[in-house]
Amino acid sequence: MMARSLTLQDVSLRFGGISVLDGVSFTVNPGSIHAVIGPNGAGKSSCFNVISGLYRATAGSVHFGDVDLCRLAPHQIAAQGVGRAFQNIALAPHETVLDNLMVARHRLTRAGMISTALALPSARREAAAHRQRVEEIAIFVGLTDVLRAPAGTLSYGWRKKVELARALATEPDILMLDEPVAGMPAGEKMEIAALIRAIRDALGISVVLVEHDMPMVMSLADHITVLDFGRRIADGTPREVMADFHVIQAYLGTTDAPADELADALNQEVADRA
């Protein structure tokens, strides 16, 4: 598995007259945790959608290693090892967690309609092998106890974990997480943060995440890109980004948090990391 960088170069995205992304560039280094942050409407999710191939960029390019992703269909991008967990959980509520995770093996398996219908030995062996692998991933994420439960019966936090596990089960080289801890209580957030670190450290997978929880981002990310109104306004290590005047202005301009409260929280995180 060659270590590959994900590089966005001057990516622009227009819908009719509206410019959603304007000349955005950044690079996700292999084996790092890279956060994309910004106020609401900054274009973070659109950025992800361009990388996944759901939107076609009006200008610019996206490369994974030396493969130009802009030319590929979404499923081909997935085949390149780009995994994604979605913000709105897309699980099948009546199926078990295990079955939900098994869908992720789609690009790695080959059984078609005919071999499945005839229950050919090759199809059955393939299913068994992949089920085993999926169970290993489930253990890594901490889902062993709920594997046989219908996904719809789990709480929100658990379902988010399943969504993450499913993205992991596609055996990606880079994992895109779209607001992985949105709506979670602090304890669960820490669990997920630890999990993301483990994904980077134990599995060597690069992680790109969109997230609003600033303290978590500051403590978790190796590198941060800040978007506002579709433009990149800062890019660097957490410390560099926090000190950046533009970033503070962007956030102060759009949040209600008093300036000193925000500055205090950020400073605290810097202190914790130091």
């Binding site: 979404p74 997935a78 690009r107």
Partner: peptide, 9 residues
């Protein structure tokens, strides 16, 4: 979108 992300053509 999720299906495509799982590699479904």
């Amino acid at each position: 979108a999720a299906a495509a992300a799982m590699g479904v053509n």
